[in-house]
Design a binder for these strands. Structure first.
Length: 713
DNA sequence: CCATCAGCTTTTTTT
DNA sequence: AAGCTGATGG
């Protein structure tokens, strides 16, 4: 049989990476180095050398990447043989199959960020700590770090020192208890539990090692400690571990990714073979030169070359715009010009640092009548009506999921209020029941009004009835629940909501089609892991709009990156430490190196952020790629950068006769301090002045009472 | 019990 | 700008 691997088109180092069959292998692959192709060919080469597809496990960073990899591999071997998935999906499969050993029921719920917040609020409340110091967001972040380091509540409690840590330990324990009570795992738990399963149950580890005899991990620079341990656990017995990645593209440190994992791979696995892929087959030398110039600024890195192979192209350009809307129109015009030239919309992308920046771009694209897609998959599943319908399905699969129960019972008014539910919860607590079980016995809950008890039982019986019939295909089941639950009636008039609901039906129908053994539990666990990048459609015939993070792993002929402003990229929230700044730089590097032919970068002098008009300065990254500052010709005459007051004072309006204060005038209040006049309602003696104070608060004051001291411009 | 509204806070990135 | 919370009134 002739080899299916296209030998003649591969470089020597690519071949080395592909044909090194046994033992640890580290592939340091720069952007555009044909890494994906190398992995695919490597899988093919393993199979050609006699390894059964069944014994190969490839781990990708996103579900989308997994799907793509499956399609590529399917060219070589019948689909379904090789296990290709993300770490999280792999963990779900492992926990479903082996979790029982660690007291995990297979029908566990996966709690997303919103569910986590709900549980965390409850945990904080139960622990009765000072609420201002222990916000849910902060605690979730803190605990997530502990989990990423595989530190369980008991271990942390033992070493916790000081007021904050001691209370954090209590909250952590409580939070875990709540999750357990709900038969739920959060995203971190999926990894943690799997890592512990491998650590504590040698039989499980052996079985998995025997199954996955060749392990490949892509984007290894973004693995966290838990993922590292899982990979190690599986590969320890046979040492057939191949990891690929690029330390310069590590952008998830904030989420626990440990760049050390890839840096110490050689120490971890003695005799590891290391292959460097430094040639770049993607971008023009013009783009690579700038990208290299940028990333060279990072101190904590192993120097790596970017060797261009393409013809010289167009220069990277930087566009200075007045505000975000001007920037958006510039992008739209440029994109329109490309499309008019006959370029493919699929090959055009716009990247930005934060999701909220898509709005201005969307508005401009609508005005220019350009087709676009915002790559934001999780948004769909976060919609109210979608969550509402899914909550019924969740409680059906996992009757202990009280979070889902509460959501389902509250989707629309049924004459069951907050107080009744609180009493039901009390009853459930005392008797060690889930809310659904308690609701079925609501007649015994004497603290609740008799008519309300009846309504609770009615609801519980309905859910119980759904539970009796939940085998097989998901989509018909979903439609049945939608009608019978009363949701259909409530949402009937809302066209937008109904559109989304039918899209959900479609997605379920698609799942039923694809899946060998469709069932509700599997479906719910799968969609819980759905991510933003999964929504990317490479053949949509639209310009793609996405965050820089979502752009990872993709490539486009024409790329726009917008918002190169200080505080936005690098983002102010992550430029605290030097490490954070380096990560922001890598993020920009990732964005730049997505471009094949043209790269255009936008900078806006002003931008509205959280409803406030902000004067901005160019990002330091712009200077690092050769930007020389604005020439005088471009100067807007609005004063020095960051001098909001100068800018604002230039807008001070003229006073009408009798008007005491002008709009935008600077004033001082004896109690509230300095502020600026936002509005002046001329009502003669009763005139009202609206002032936004420096404290951030906006007040409406009667001119005749407010003791204001005018400071002019 | 439930709808509504004023007022307050808001971590940006994501599995 | 947007989402959440607590207060108010029906």
């Amino acid at each position: 049989m002739a080899s299916v691997i296209p030998m003649e088109t591969l470089t020597e180092s690519q071949k080395e990476a592909i044909f090194h069959k046994d033992g640890p292998l580290l592939v340091l692959a720069g952007p555009g180095s044909g890494k994906t192709r190398v992995i695919t060919c490597r899988i093919a080469a393993l199979i050609e050398s006699g390894v059964r597809p069944y014994h190969i496990c490839a781990i990708t960073f996103t579900n989308k990447a997994a799907e793509e990899m499956r399609n590529r591999v399917a060219v070589f071997v019948p689909a379904g043989g090789v296990h290709i998935s993300t770490f999280h999906s792999l963990c779900v499969s492992i926990l479903r199959r082996y979790g029982e050993a660690a007291q995990i029921q297979s029908n566990f719920s996966i709690f997303d960020v919103k569910d986590q917040q709900r549980c965390m609020k409850e945990a904080i409340k139960d622990c009765q700590v000072n609420v201002t110091n222990f916000t849910p967001a902060r605690m979730l972040d803190f605990i997530s770090r502990l989990k990423n380091d595989l530190e369980c509540p008991r271990e942390f409690e033992a070493r916790a020192a000081g007021f904050f840590e001691k209370n954090a330990a209590r909250i952590y324990a409580k939070y875990q208890q709540i999750l357990k009570q709900n038969n739920a795992l959060d995203f971190d738990d999926l990894l943690v539990r799997t890592a512990f399963l491998l650590r504590d149950f040698p039989a499980v580890r052996e079985e998995l090692s025997a199954r996955f005899r060749y392990l490949l991990v892509d984007e290894y620079q973004d693995t966290n400690h838990a993922q590292y341990q899982i990979a190690k656990g599986i590969a320890l017995a046979h040492r057939n571990i191949c990891v690929t990645g690029d330390p310069d593209q590590s952008i998830y440190r904030w989420r626990g990714a440990d760049i050390e994992n890839i840096l110490v791979f050689e120490k971890d696995w003695p005799q590891a073979k290391v292959v460097k892929l430094e040639e770049n087959f993607r971008s023009t030398p013009n783009i690579l030169e700038k990208a290299d110039q940028l990333i060279a600024q990072n101190m904590k890195r192993k120097a790596k070359k970017l060797i261009p192979t393409k013809e010289k192209g167009l220069d990277v350009c930087i566009e200075i715009c007045e505000d975000e809307s001007a920037e958006a129109h510039w992008v739209a015009e440029q994109a329109e010009a490309l499309i008019d030239e006959g370029k493919d919309s699929n090959q055009i992308a716009v990247f930005y640092r934060v999701n909220s920046m898509s709005r201005a771009i969307e508005e401009a694209f609508v005005q220019h009548q350009l087709p676009y897609q915002v790559v934001r998959g999780v948004e769909f599943y976060a919609r109210k009506e979608i969550r509402d319908l899914l909550s019924y399905l969740k409680v059906m699969v996992n009757s202990q999921d009280d979070v889902a129960f509460l959501r389902a019972i509250g989707t629309h008014p049924r004459g069951i209020g907050k107080t009744s539910l609180e009493r039901l919860e009390q009853f459930a607590r005392i008797h060690g029941l889930s809310l659904l079980e308690a609701a079925l016995r609501a007649e015994q809950v004497e603290t609740v009004n008799r008519p309300t008890r009846g309504r609770i039982v009615e609801f519980a019986k309905m859910v119980q009835q759904f539970r009796d019939d939940m085998e097989g295909d998901v989509s018909p089941l979903m439609e049945r629940v939608f009608d019978a639950s009363g949701l259909a009636k409530v949402l009937g008039a809302d066209a937008d909501a109904m559109d989304n609901i039918s899209e959900l039906f479609n997605s379920a129908a698609e799942y039923d089609q694809r899946s060998e053994e469709p069932n509700l539990m599997d479906y719910l666990q799968m969609i819980a892991l759905y991510s933003d990048s999964d929504a990317y459609n490479a053949e949509a015939g639209r310009v793609s709009l996405m965050t820089l993070h979502a752009a990872k792993g993709l490539e486009f002929d024409h790329v726009f990156i917008i918002g190169l402003e200080d505080g936005l990229l690098p983002h102010e929230r992550s430029s605290i430490g030097a490490d954070d700044l380096e990560e922001e730089r890598r993020l920009f590097f990732v964005g730049m190196t997505r471009a094949r032919q043209t790269l255009k970068i936008g900078y806006a002098r002003h931008r509205v952020i959280r409803g406030q008009f902000i004067r901005s300065t160019p990002s330091q990254f712009l200077y690092e790629i050769g930007f020389e500052g604005e020439s005088d010709a471009f100067d807007s005459g609005w004063g020095e950068p960051n001098d909001f007051d100068n800018f604002a004072s230039s807008l001070v309006s003229k006073k009408k006769p009798g008007q005491l204060y002008a709009v935008n005038e600077l004033v001082e209040h004896s109690k509230f301090g300095l502020g600026r006049v936002k509005e002046y309602l001329d009502l003669g003696e009763d005139s009202i002045v609206v002032i936004r104070f420096n404290s951030g608060k906006t007040k409406s004051l009667m001119v005749k009472y407010a003791k204001l001291n005018s400071l002019g411009g």
